[in-house]
C-alpha cells in the first residue's frame, strides 16, 4: 500500500515536471506563508510568476479581495519590492495598506477609466522585471487577454492579480481563480469590538492543482488559519 502511494506521488511529480512545473529551487523555504492553503497549488507552493484572478461580486467583496491581496503583497514585496496598482479613479485608500504590512509609498497607483487603457498598462506592467507584483481592477477579461497576461508574466517573474467583476466567468488562462468573502472578525474571547480580520477564501479553479475552501485571518502581519472553534463562537454571537 505504502509503495503504491509513493509510486502515485512520484508519477504526479513527473507529470508536473513534464508540463513545465519545476519544483521550487528553495524547497520548503519558497513557501509564502499561506499555511495549508498553499498545498492546493502544483508542487505545494504559491505560484509567483503567474496571474491570479479574484472574483468580486459586490463592493464588500471587492474590499475583502483588496485586503487579502494586500496581505499577499506584503509577503511578496518585503521591504524593497514595488507594486503597481491599476485601478479605476482612485478608490483604494493608500493608508489602509499599512495595516497589511505594505508601505503605501512603495505602491504606484495608476487610475484609468477605460478598459482598453487598463489592459494595455497591465500587460506592459507585467512585462516589467523591476516590479514585484501588479494588481489590476478590471470589469471583464476574456481568454485571449488572460493568455497575453500569462505570456507577459512568464518572462518577467512578476506576480499578477486581477480583481474582476463576477460577470461572465468564462475560461481564462490564469493560474487560479479566487473568491474572497469577509467573515465575522475573531478576537480574543468575549472582548467587545472588532477583532482580527477574517476571510473565507475559496479557490474556484487552480491550474494543475486542487480547488479548496479555507478560512484565514490576518494577525500581526501574517496569515493565520482560522481555528474552527472561533468560528463556532462567532456564530453564537451572531
Amino acid at each position: 500500500m505504502e509503495k503504491r502511494q509513493q509510486v502515485i506521488s512520484k508519477l504526479r511529480q513527473d507529470l508536473l515536471a513534464w508540463e513545465g512545473y519545476k519544483p521550487p529551487a528553495g524547497g520548503r523555504s519558497a513557501l509564502l506563508g499561506l499555511g495549508e492553503l498553499e498545498q492546493v497549488f502544483p508542487n505545494g507552493v504559491f505560484p509567483k510568476n503567474c496571474v491570479h484572478e479574484l472574483v468580486c461580486a459586490s463592493m464588500e467583496q471587492a474590499a475583502a479581495s483588496g485586503g487579502f491581496v494586500s496581505g499577499v503583497l506584503s509577503l511578496l514585496m518585503g521591504t524593497e519590492g514595488v507594486c503597481v496598482w491599476i485601478g479605476r479613479a482612485r478608490r483604494l485608500f493608500a493608508p489602509a495598506l499599512t495595516g497589511f504590512g505594505v508601505a503605501p509609498h512603495q505602491v504606484i497607483f495608476i487610475s484609468l477609466h477605460q478598459d482598453k487603457d487598463t489592459l494595455w498598462v497591465m500587460e506592459e506592467a507585467l512585462k516589467c522585471p523591476g516590479l514585484t507584483a501588479v494588481v489590476c481592477e478590471l470589469r471583464e477579461m476574456d481568454f485571449k487577454q488572460s493568455q497575453r497576461f500569462q505570456r507577459a508574466v512568464e518572462h518577467s517573474g512578476v506576480t499578477g492579480f486581477v480583481l474582476r467583476n463576477a460577470g461572465q466567468l468564462s475560461a481564462t488562462a490564469s493560474a487560479a481563480r479566487w473568491q474572497i468573502r469577509s467573515l465575522p472578525s475573531s478576537g480574543p474571547d468575549g472582548l467587545p469590538g472588532l477583532g482580527f480580520l477574517c476571510w473565507q477564501v475559496d479557490l474556484l479553479k487552480v491550474r494543475n492543482g486542487k480547488t479548496g475552501s479555507f478560512r484565514l485571518s490576518w494577525q500581526d502581519k501574517r496569515f493565520v488559519p482560522l481555528a474552527e472553534r472561533v468560528i463556532r463562537e462567532e456564530r453564537q454571537v451572531g
Binding site: L112, D117, W120
Partner: peptide
Amino acid sequence: TALAELLDRIAGRVGADVIQRF
C-alpha cells in the same frame, strides 16, 4: 531602470497624470 521606463511609456500613452504615488 525598468520601472522608470515603464512609467515613461504609460505617461506617453495615457498621460502623466494617471500615475500617482501617495
